[in-house]
Design a protein around this nucleic acid. Structure first.
Lengths: 354, 354
DNA sequence: TTCGCTACTGTTAGCGCTAACCTCGATGCA
DNA sequence: TGCATCGAGGTTAGCGCTAACAGTAGCGAA
């Protein structure tokens, strides 16, 4: 009984303040405790450490709490326990299905364990990422899930000063101190290029947009494969800073024609570009794959349904989210994860467009 | 130097505890204050109420804070001020672009004002929504943004007991006490059906999936328009609980053929279904719109690029998110918003598929 | 000179929880 | 019988911030 005059008779009524409920009008743990006739810590334990409270008392506490509309105050809990039960998740884009599915995997792993995700969208910008890291650090997250490894110097400082574990998604890191879950983008690029070569295409183009590290890694794979075959030609590579879209893919077909490109196949760094290209070819009467082969990356839902269906490489993004979250859970519980670098591989999908 | 004995000579070393930094090892406001030689409240004001601190002192405080890597503790701030600067946002799905774009509008409005969004995905389930509301109430959000009005009884109780303002998105409410931003789904259904009638179609089918309130409102609009024309036939309505997808749209074309449906036009409740239908028609050689007209809803990006392009109704989802957030900001600041029910209208888009 | 006022900065007292330690009675065992 | 042990609960003391009030200095007006 911290401040009030207490029950003894002559309590000066003046400063007697037994808070019935918080400033916000909501019931507090103390209110529930008083109603049940126990101390606050017992209520706390009934929620957080059930095994420490006698079963029927626990039942009574939970019932009373429910009937009073009591909801624990997360801020107070976080402050007192130094655990926010929150994980900050930073992804580059939300309009790109790839990351949305990653998010789904993260959620499915985290929510049942009582953790909440704080989602930030970096728009592929390291500066924006830095800003978001600063903001989300205010929440004292118990863990961080980042996409890629392209951080600003300041962001690196924040991260290294941070005691909470951080797992990198999508790209794989070689540094043994870092944790990563993903797949080799470079291998993906190589896989597709090798397939196109095997199909007999010799003048293979590459369209890179967004120019994020993953796109560039795919481009590397493409280049290496073609260099090995002695067929690499810088003139068949298009690099655009724009974001990936169906519209841009369609526009690229127009551009290839305008430039009199001699490509017999074009490898687009993302499926939506390739879909746009397919649509535009259909519109212009360009026969795919006879006149021009088209390949994509990521295996988006529509790619199995276009005419012709699209050859692509499927990335295990849901699994990446799930496994990255699982790795983080291990670390947050103080366990060493089975591996600090988890390669989930890729699936090549040959369809009609090549 | 967590517990050092202090500088003044005869300080009783026993219980003297001047915390140098928090348990988590991070610098606290008190650390910054000590370093600068001011009190903690001045540091607090330098961040939150800059106009109350002399400009050069403020500069010194901010610089020192930066150099110490100080990050305010949001939990402590929320607890002390009873303002979490957090808005809980519940949407039915994240794989549906419609809601992702709504989210973008919300973010664009909220983040610059210092508010953070806590995103929850209900998967179109009122029970899941109830669970999420309970979870997010723990964060004492300063405001709530909900999709639709289909809540459980318990959720309603939570919401009415809540002092934070709530704005409903997508659907419009007639109840003058509620706040809503959206458009009339029913009108959308009517608009499209009227268009199809005007084009001369007489045996118009409707494919409803998910069966959420918005889909059913579109169905109502369709039904009313056809009833007025004396052409409504329950046999041309398909109701499926499945979630909307390209694949399902394609399957529906197969099903229509298997059932020997006499439809001359089909209105799909969502664009991805319609796209799937279009793809399947192309595959089967069904000429659209000559043999069968196809219409969608929502105007997803690919709909302008399919062959033929898809007739649809564009919903202002980004604007809905933005305006709902703006309305919430007004309310959180204690201002009455210009209107409590904001209809942002729809745009009918006639293309080649009808 | 005194008052009132503005512009800053400080002091005090919590916000609603939980970690850490403590009490107390029941139990088991030598 | 004595004592360690355990299970179930309580006490105390903050976590790191901010609201509310309390100075204090400086300055112009009466």
């Amino acid at each position: 009984m911290t401040t009030h005059g207490d029950d003894q008779a002559a309590a000066p009524a003046v400063k007697t303040r037994k808070p019935r409920s918080s400033r916000t009008g909501r019931a507090t743990m103390a209110d529930v405790a008083e109603r049940v006739g126990v101390s606050a810590i017992t209520v706390s334990r009934a929620f957080k450490r059930p095994e420490l409270v006698a079963p029927d008392l626990r039942r009574r506490i939970l019932d009373t709490a429910q009937s009073m509309g009591y909801v624990p105050n997360q801020a107070a809990s976080a402050l007192a326990s130094a655990r926010s039960m929150t994980v900050a998740v930073l992804i580059p884009s939300m309009t790109n299905m790839v990351f949305v599915e990653t998010l789904a995997g993260i959620h499915d792993m985290l929510l049942p364990r009582g953790y909440r995700a704080l989602i930030g969208v970096t728009h592929y910008s390291p500066e924006e990422e830095e800003r978001l890291i600063r903001t989300y650090l205010q929440f004292q997250p118990d863990g961080l899930l980042l996409t890629g490894t392209d951080h600003t110097a300041v962001a690196r400082t924040y991260l290294s000063a941070l005691s909470s574990p951080t797992v990198h998604m999508m790209e794989l890191l070689d540094d043994p101190d870092s944790l990563s879950v993903g797949c080799s983008q470079e291998e993906g690029g190589r896989l597709m290029t090798t397939h196109l070569l095997a199909r007999g295409y010799r003048r293979i183009g590459f369209v890179a947009v967004q120019l994020d590290p993953r796109t560039l890694a795919r481009l590397d794979g493409y280049r290496h494969a073609l260099e090995e075959a002695g067929l690499y030609d810088e003139a068949r590579v298009w690099r655009l800073p724009d974001r990936s879209s169906i519209q841009l893919g369609a526009a690229m077909i127009d551009r290839l024609r305008a430039e009199n490109s001699d490509c017999d196949a074009v490898f687009f760094c993302n499926d939506d570009l390739a879909q746009g290209a397919l649509f535009q070819c259909q519109r212009l009467g360009i026969r795919v794959p006879q006149q021009l082969a088209i390949a994509g990356f990521n295996d988006l839902p529509a790619s199995a349904w276009t005419t012709p269906t699209l050859t692509t490489v499927a990335t295990p993004r849901y699994a990446i989210g799930r496994n990255a979250a699982a790795m983080l859970l291990d670390l947050m519980d103080g366990r060493e994860p089975p591996q600090r670098r988890l390669d989930l591989g890729l699936t090549f999908i040959a369809r009609e467009s090549t």
